[in-house]
Design a protein around this nucleic acid. Structure first.
Lengths: 379, 379
DNA sequence: CGGAATATCTTCGATATCGAAGGAAGTGAG
DNA sequence: CTCACTTCCTTCGATATCGAAGATATTCCG
């Protein structure tokens, strides 16, 4: 349909404020955007006429007349987002405010290479669009998370360790040939961090740790994802203090990943004669109070916590959120907390919150939606 | 004089672009500010009429008509800035573009407490103003660096380790009673980082390590100082890997500061029978090729480098600048580099520059000027 | 040397934004 | 219930910004 609706530029700013839930009325838009109330009224009317915004009842009074509540129109458009894992992909459709319309998980081997994988994802998008989106509602953006580093300049995957055939592949360009739309490609932990950040409204600086088969981390500074030169957020190859010495796949000894990742815990459990296949199995063992598993998880938490002490002192965030499939094991976060509280500067931990992630399984998809909304509504 | 000149708001944005050297002509102002060229012309004319900007010759052509170069008028105003150390204070006057008009160093015991110290600084400001600034040129801002953490919300010093009597003292409020102007109070390493950042034009993300009697660090993210909750940038109390065990003044064992700070090196030299009083003495020993000193400095560099590996992987900066009085010792930076190159992810070090600080002794004062310029020219 | 191309800056009418004033809708105190 | 007060939103004239067109100055290149 009409791609030329006023979704970009100054109008887009208003749209985004409503979509992200920061503003729900003309008055709030005026406060947050800095524009005059009269200008807001005019522009909002245009957006309503264009079918992008809709009025819906009235909000709660703040001591005067009740505001007329604004909402994004369902017809404003949808976003298609995916999160690629090693052996499966999670994908779905969101409306522009990031609300999931449909989300599903499919098996999908990333080792099949970029073309096959991305085409499979795009086919799935098309099927979902046909089934769940009425004609006339436009697709406005496409995004995917990948389990490896992404060069923010070129949107290519660079030197991934577990994505054979993907090195230097122009993921965004490939998707752009199929969709003439804003395309987003981002590391999965980064997406998760962005998705998580929306659940911590007052906090501008967050670290989000993803404890699963590997250990990932995303950083949000001043409310925005910090990419650095594309590698920011890596904590898995930090050297930990240790008596023994384990060689990591990266070639260096004593990486955090070699001690505290789900994969490392699985190896250690195997040595104790307990076979597990996924990190979730470890969580089950812990919940069943299997002592070997509990002890290992506690140890992993302490090691992760020790690494975090350095970063908390340095970065001084408001929140450290711990997600990923391993985070469901209670002792993990408890021992992370203990290590950080013990060793960090009091000033750095004064108002620090170390908490389980709030965004749930779809955090990365929601994060992709948030970043895509930016891309769609900016000039 | 007239404080009501158009230094704030939209006009201030233009002023700041010229003051920071980002724009030198109307055309550059238009490109950087996003405003129409015609609007720029009008506003620049106002600023010239108000005596804030001045035209000065013409710049170099970019293939067409030469731009008419814009400069900040010397009459636009001055800033008074200071950097408090333990036993001395460096202070001076800058013009609005951060150019130093006069800078001097005076003995000053910070242990005398905040009132005495700040009054002494203010008296010095007044003397410099009377001597070096013509009547009619207004003082537009006052700022000081302090060797301890500052709460960015209240501009008070909080839990400083080497500033007896300063805890929770409202430094900014105290200065504001004497100057009815924007007042800046900031940690000295943070100011140094801001000053340094101006010397790395293309780089948006920097870590600036200050290696002196203590070890400080300032972080610049996206071109702006990162404060976190006020404690950001601390690296001195990170636990280092070590066979022995040294107890740090903070109460924890094996802090970086206890191994690699100038104070720690002085202690180690004393044990070897070599007495030094200041970090600069250590540099002299190294330059004279005293083996004990060289070996100690090399060791300190390696330890600092090991801590930096964690932070470089995590933060992925463009530049790590090493300043402070110890940084004049060649082996320090060499061994920092070696440790980082060896252990960091190739992706993180790909375009990383580890280099001596460029801003020199007055980095902190220049940083104070930069931040004050912000405060003066913002709405 | 001279025209084509490029870049800077200004002029001027069209347009978008502002801000003061006022109407609309609600809260709370007496 | 009434009146004072607050907040939300719109109306409308004043004003600031834009953008197309043109004037000016300089480089590039045949």
């Amino acid at each position: 349909m009409n791609q030329r609706l006023p979704v970009r530029g100054p109008q887009g700013d208003l749209l985004r404020l409503v979509a992200t839930g920061k503003a729900e009325s003309r008055a709030e838009l005026a406060r947050l955007s800095g524009l005059a109330a009269s200008s807001i009224s005019l522009r909002v009317e245009e957006l309503i006429d264009a079918g992008l915004l809709a009025e819906e009842g009235s909000g709660t009074s703040r001591g005067g007349r009740r505001p007329r509540r604004l909402r994004l129109s369902p017809a404003a458009g949808v976003l298609a987002v995916a999160d690629l894992g090693a052996h499966h992909v999670r994908l779905g459709l969101l409306d522009l405010s990031g609300f999931p319309l449909v989300i599903e998980e499919r098996p999908c081997e990333i080792a099949d290479g970029p073309r096959a994988t991305l085409d499979r994802v795009a086919d799935a998008f098309d099927a979902l669009l046909a089934e769940h989106v009425p004609a006339g509602v436009p697709l406005r953006g496409v995004g995917t998370g990948v389990p490896g580093p992404v060069d923010p300049a070129t949107l290519r995957v660079v030197t991934p360790s577990r994505m054979p055939g993907w090195n230097d592949f122009p993921v965004a360009d490939h998707l752009a040939t199929r969709y003439d739309l804003p395309v987003l490609v981002e590391n999965d932990a980064n997406l998760m961090a962005v998705g998580e950040a929306r659940h911590w409204p007052g906090s501008e600086n967050l670290m989000v740790v993803k404890a699963g088969t590997g250990i990932g981390c995303g950083v949000v500074v001043n409310g925005r994802l910090h990419r650095g030169r594309g590698a920011a957020g890596d904590i898995s190859h930090v050297r930990v203090r240790s008596d023994s010495s384990i060689l990591c796949a990266c070639g260096h000894p004593d990486c955090l990943e070699a001690y505290a990742s789900g994969a490392a815990l699985a190896d250690a459990l195997a040595e104790a004669g307990i076979e597990v296949t996924r990190p979730a199995d470890i969580v089950t063992l812990v919940n069943d109070a299997v002592p070997e598993a509990t002890s290992l998880v506690r140890n992993a938490g302490r090691r992760i916590g020790e690494v975090l002490t350095v970063l908390v002192n340095f970065f001084n965030p408001d929140v450290v959120a711990v997600g990923g499939s391993l985070s469901a094991a209670e002792p993990l976060i408890t021992s992370i907390r203990a290590a950080v509280w013990e060793r960090c500067l009091p000033l750095a931990t004064r108002d620090l919150e170390i908490a389980p992630a709030r965004a749930g399984r779809d955090a990365a998809l929601l994060g992709a939606g948030t970043l895509l909304l930016e891309a769609v509504t900016r000039p």
